[in-house]
Amino acid sequence: MNRRDFLYASSLMLASPLTFSSSSNNENKPLVLGVFPRRNAKTTYKIFTPLTNALSEHLNRKVDLVSTKDFPSFWQGVQHRKFDIVHFNQYHYVIAHQLYGYDVILKNMEFGQATIAGSIAVRKDLNINTVEDLRNKTIAFGGGYRAMMSYIAVTWLLRQGGLNHGDYKETFARNPPNALITAYHKRADAAGAGDMAIRLDIVKKNIDVSEMKYLARTESLTHLPWAVRNDLDLSLIQKITQFLEGLKDDPAGQKILDAAKLSGLLKTSDDQYDSHRELIKKVYGEDYGISRFER
């Protein structure tokens, strides 16, 4: 059994039905914190375990951190409202809010910013200067179709640049850093990822970011959300919200946030994701692509 399989098995065990409960109102029942596989499961567990433990300690209630090996597994958990608390991307929230009764409570603040823009990055030495230059080129998206910044926002940029589906080749990287690395290594001509991705250590570690440039960028949009199941006890929600938001206010909390690769968690509301809704409509249509992805 290799490491992948082991992690996969572990995550399955951790994500077993026994772990989930349709109701989280039972105070003895652990809260389930689901984090979408933005990063690999190991990293996800690593960076969010301190937060989970802190929350658990604060709530005086066990909180189980769950991250799946792939997005379908994770989304299944969302669809089945397995998660009491869930951290995912903006598109996930829009759909989850619309279909599965999740309400946003917090938003990420990364690199000191609570917003993020989608961007198209290319190697400087490829003589690609406009979006139009990407025609017939290969674009490595930093996420799948549900990736808000890495795909939806980037697709919108491509549409804005006059490129429709079919005018370019799509290839998908595991995540935004990989998209950038893929484009850097010329495995793709461009990388679609959130504009902050290029600032990530993992990206800097693997490529010389000075050789990359932004070809296009969207407006800044609200960062990745943290949502709760709308049937949670309000007080619980408030506790959770306050605790997580307060992390940035003390060194211990800051350490937890540093571990989670966050600058902070800010309280947010659903309406801050209306811009996303507009952008999503422009790419997937009025139904936000629900008919394409959810049925």
């Binding site: 690999n40 998908f172 595991r174 995540n175 690395i181 993992i202």
Partner: peptide, 12 residues
């Protein structure tokens, strides 16, 4: 897999 998934980070 990493190459197919463009997961250079994991490959790294």
């Amino acid at each position: 897999e990493s190459l197919l998934l463009n997961d250079i980070v994991s490959l790294n």
